[in-house]
């Protein structure tokens, strides 16, 4: 249903909004962690809550965007959980926000504040260097055991 509001209704709605805003916290989910997160592995654990006592039939919607205005948005999750583990993120900043519904997804709360996840993976060359070192140590160990696997126990091999 779509109907236009009379000027008096608009004024009342404005006053109500100002009053609610001045006496209560914004009616939206709150993050349980900082709004600026960073990761060198491309994964992050998001946690949120909605009020002190969570309604039984609450549904959350978690959105991810590659821009702060959420122009290109993916809904990552819709359901009752109050946390989500997000992995596989590439270099760059990802943005997350969440909102809640307590009436079967008919009306929704305001969006939460935006969490910015700054992903900067380890330097690839450094990672390859460590992988090479790991390969050398492992192959040395394996080669050692293979070479000596049949050594006699009376006077085994030497260095």
């Amino acid at each position: 249903m779509n109907r236009s509001l009379a000027p008096r209704d608009c004024a009342l709605a404005f006053l109500l909004t100002v009053w609610v805003g001045s006496t209560h916290a914004a009616p939206s989910p709150q993050w349980d962690h900082d709004e600026a997160l960073s990761s060198a592995e491309g994964y992050v654990q998001l946690r949120w809550h909605f009020g002190d006592v969570e309604p039984e039939n609450i549904v959350y919607e978690l959105q991810e965007g590659r821009r702060p205005v959420f122009a290109d948005t993916d809904t990552r999750y819709r359901g009752p959980a109050t946390s989500s583990f997000v992995s596989g993120l590439e270099d760059g900043i990802s943005y997350f926000r969440v909102r809640a519904s307590v009436d079967g997804e008919v009306t929704w709360s305001e969006w939460s504040s935006t969490v910015e996840v700054d992903v900067k993976h380890h330097d690839r060359n450094f990672a390859l260097l460590l992988m090479g070192l790991g390969g050398f140590v492992f192959l040395s160990t394996a080669a050692f055991l293979i070479v000596h696997r049949n050594d006699p126990t009376s006077d085994g091999g030497t260095s």
């Binding site: 330097d123 450094f126 990672a127 390859l128 992988m131 790991g134 140590v137 160990t141």
Partner: peptide
């Protein structure tokens, strides 16, 4: 990167 570093670390 993190996975490349983890391979031999986990093996060892």
């Amino acid at each position: 990167p993190a996975a490349l570093m983890a391979i031999f670390n986990n093996m060892l």
